[in-house]
């Protein structure tokens, strides 16, 4: 498996990141948006872990960073879902386009 070059991992991360970004920016369903954001963060983690093994100067720090990123992502998702629940209770929708109560 050492034959797999680092660039493949990086490309994977980039593709995942782009998919996530696309989803986060275009999807109507808030849950999917949150999932897309998680995808973006996971792409970052792939990057970090790849670099920690195959980077210019491999070091363990990348993995540490990835762990922190995971924990933060979890907290973010938890807060996002909690807020979504509060919103759903009041509004009965998870559609982003329905969030237009302001601008007046």
């Amino acid at each position: 498996m050492s034959s797999v070059p680092a660039s493949a991992f990086l490309a994977l991360a980039l593709i995942l990141f782009c998919i996530g970004l696309f989803g986060a920016l275009t999807k109507k369903n808030t849950v999917i948006v949150l999932i897309s954001i998680e995808l973006m963060l996971n792409a970052v983690n792939i990057n970090l872990v790849t670099f920690s093994k195959y980077g210019m100067a491999p070091s363990i720090t990348g993995q540490v960073f990835a762990l922190f990123a995971m924990a933060v992502a979890a907290a973010e998702a938890a807060v996002g879902l909690a807020i979504l629940m509060a919103l759903y209770r009041n509004r009965k929708t998870v559609n982003i386009d329905d969030m237009d109560n302001m601008k007046n």
Binding site: M70, A71, A74, A75
Partner: peptide, 9 residues
């Protein structure tokens, strides 16, 4: 989610 991920550390 919160508690399980904290075990990461």
């Amino acid at each position: 989610v919160i508690f399980d991920v904290e075990t990461v550390f």
